[in-house]
């Protein structure tokens, strides 16, 4: 119940901040900052600077990513930007361009 969902026909140009789980099926441009998990689902497009505890990408993400726990790129995902997270998972089939910083 306490999770935010951005539907597929929704376009947000601005900033999303929150405490809860955030699911993006639509388009978000600007900045995202959540204390919980961010999931960019298939068809979702995020062109933003992202800061979250955990990030799962199945759609498209353009922008720099910082995750305090982990970042996961699923097979259908496209990511362009730098990723900074202690644990990073990139699945076979995922498309990624950018720098990786695992804090090592």
């Amino acid at each position: 119940m306490s999770s935010t969902v951005i539907g597929s026909s929704i376009l947000i140009d601005g900033e999303i901040t929150g405490e809860e789980h955030l699911v993006v099926r639509g388009t978000v441009k600007g900045r995202i900052q959540v204390r919980d998990t961010l999931v960019i689902e298939d068809g979702g497009l995020v062109e933003a600077t992202v800061d979250a505890a955990s990030i799962t990408v199945q759609g498209t993400l353009r922008g720099d990513v910082a995750a305090s726990e982990r970042a996961e790129l699923r097979p259908s995902s496209t990511v362009v930007g730098d990723i900074r997270a202690p644990r990073i998972l990139i699945a076979d089939g995922a498309s990624f361009k950018g720098n990786v910083d695992m804090g090592g």
Partner: peptide, 12 residues
């Protein structure tokens, strides 16, 4: 959700 804040333009 209750703890979420969106600032900017929203359309859909």
């Amino acid at each position: 959700a209750p703890g979420t804040h969106i600032a900017g333009r929203l359309s859909g």
